[in-house]
Design a protein around this nucleic acid. Structure first.
Lengths: 160, 160
DNA sequence: GCTTAAATTGAAATTCAATTTCAAGAGGGT
DNA sequence: ACCCTCTTGAAATTGAATTTCAATTTAAGC
């Protein structure tokens, strides 16, 4: 799914649901697609505020939920108590590797694992609708740093 | 890990941390082990209140966190906005199948998936510390009911 | 067994993200 | 332009998690 098709998707979703296309929604979608990463409502709101201080937090929140509803964004919960949304543009389903030290997030996909999941599910009579697989550990960089100093969270650590 | 070794674990954890063994902690641990399932703080609190109305919610909350710290309980987040704790007694690591209709939770383990996870992680230079795998779908029962009536959440649905 | 310092408890208050409310404003069909 | 409906944004609310704090309990040392 390209950025453009994400926009088209969103427009037609709004149309079919009797919702309206607004300036704020366009701006939020643009910024969301530009950012690319796994953003929390808070983070996207802060980014938007730089150029568009008039857009409220509640609107960002509601718009992200709309993105999720129409399938152009996927909500993720990585255990830091915030909901993040990732763009579904340009990608198939994937899972995540998360560095417990610096917070880096790497995406991966592995058809063998997916196949085994199906197999496990059918053994238990389940029909899978979706799944979540997250691997938490240390990325290469943080393993290296770990050898030098071990003072808890790595100094390279990002924002949070 | 048996119930008894869980208790021993907890006791020695308290000892090494300079914490105290209290009546409330004993009661909460007993009830937690007895319940067995994936309990939220709220649920455990309510269960305890029947026999021990004097035990406060905050104490249950803090005690569950202690259980997690000393490794006799594992916190789980199944997307309903509540933290659940499952006992690590008597089991190896396992993952979850969750019915999106009736809320049933089935545990499973699959060494092949685990092995593939390690493989994926090392391809990306990660050293895994822990992981989370959850498969969401419909259990057998709910697939059957689904064929009869499709009125949203299944009538057999549990508590929540 | 008593004393005492330190940890614990429980009720209430607080935090924090998520969500809702509501009056004012903006889309878009006619 | 009119009007109905949806949307917006600030503020209020919710709900779970967490913290506060005075009273109580634990357990270590006499």
């Amino acid at each position: 799914m390209t950025d453009q098709s994400a926009k088209d998707n969103f427009r037609s979703y709004l149309a079919t649901q009797g919702l309206k296309s607004t300036r704020q929604r366009d701006i939020i979608l643009d910024e969301f697609l530009r950012a690319g990463a796994h953003l929390s409502t808070e983070e996207l709101y802060l980014r938007l505020r730089e150029q568009h201080p008039h857009i409220g937090y509640a609107t960002v929140h509601r718009t992200l939920k709309l993105f999720a509803e129409c399938g152009i964004a996927e909500p993720c919960h990585f255990g830091d108590g915030q909901t993040r949304y990732e763009s579904s543009a340009g990608e198939e389903h994937h899972d995540h590797l998360i560095c417990t030290d610096c917070g880096a997030i790497v995406e991966f996909e592995n058809p063998q694992i997916e196949a085994l999941q199906e197999s496990v599910a059918s053994q238990h009579g389940f029909l899978i609708e979706r799944h979540r697989l997250e691997l938490y550990g240390r990325c290469q960089q943080c393993q290296v740093f770990k050898n030098v100093v071990d003072t808890g969270r790595n100094e390279r650590s990002s924002s949070r």
